[in-house]
């Protein structure tokens, strides 16, 4: 069968979701942000909630998320996305509200807003992209930077003495009674992507139940600031990030 025949007579297995705009994303080649954006957009498309969704972008690499999602979007001050989501959801209870935050935004400057939105049990979805580094500002240490890991602000490697421990904020969040579903996922292989999408879907569906925060951490890469090619970054992620940030559900309604 020729290529033309397959396209003409076969089935369409995969296409870019129209819930993403046509704008070319500014992310570096191979960055997990693009994949995660796509998964969220696909979930919004599949649930048919494009007209009912309001997203909140952080400060950090994904500050421009609003240029890529074809949904209404609010750009929050650094760390304040959970406070923003709280107000939007409380004032628009019929809408689907999600935050999209990186590790610096969610687990450093915005820790208070994160913990309190989760503890209040706001009926929102929170997407947390953890790549253990500050991407936008040029590779500084994040609260989630691994011990021994080099960044431009811990150039000889993170030490406990100088910088304290990497923060497993998702574990803290799972311990809060206001959260309903807490999971840690990744997007560096097709299998992980498919699983992550199911988790995001669940995290959005949960808003219908009004039972509290659904929180999805996604362990991701930062090949530019990790200073390695995208494929090597994904290998490094599997070898170094996953042992410290193991994948799987931390809290599910069933358990």
């Amino acid at each position: 069968m020729t290529r033309e025949e397959i396209i003409k007579n076969g089935e369409l297995v995969y296409r870019r979701t129209p819930v993403l705009t046509d704008n070319v994303m500014h992310y570096c080649p191979g960055c997990g942000h693009g994949t995660i954006h796509r998964l969220i957009a696909e979930v919004i498309e599949e649930m048919g909630i494009q007209d009912k969704t309001i997203g909140i972008s952080p400060v950090g690499c994904s500050v421009f998320a609003y240029n890529y999602f074809d949904v209404d979007f609010v750009e929050a001050a650094h760390g304040r996305a959970p406070a923003c989501a709280t107000a939007i959801k409380r004032l628009n209870t019929d809408k689907f509200v999600f935050t999209y935050q990186g590790d610096g935004d969610l687990a450093a400057i915005g820790t208070a807003e994160t913990i309190h939105a989760c503890n209040r049990g706001e009926n929102i979805t929170m997407i947390f992209v953890n790549n253990a580094i500050y991407g936008m500002t040029g590779g500084q240490m994040a609260p989630t930077t691994l011990l021994g890991m080099k960044t431009v602000t811990c150039p000889y490697g993170r030490t406990v003495e100088a910088n304290g421990y990497p923060l497993k904020i998702t574990d803290i969040i799972a311990s809060l009674p206001g959260t309903y579903y807490v999971t840690r996922q990744a997007v560096f292989t097709p299998a992980h992507v498919r699983k992550c999408k199911q988790a995001i879907r669940k995290a959005f569906e949960n808003q219908k139940l009004k039972k509290g925060v659904s929180f999805v951490e996604i362990v991701s890469n930062c090949n530019s600031n990790w200073k390695m090619p995208a494929t090597k970054a994904n290998e490094w992620l599997e070898a170094n990030m996953l042992p410290f940030y193991p994948l799987g559900d931390l809290k599910t309604p069933e358990k």
């Binding site: 909140i56 609010v74 001050a77 304040r80 923003c84 208070a112 807003e113």
Partner: peptide
């Protein structure tokens, strides 16, 4: 800080 950002978003 949270209050004013809730106001921002509202």
């Amino acid at each position: 800080t949270a209050s004013i950002n809730m106001v921002y978003a509202g």
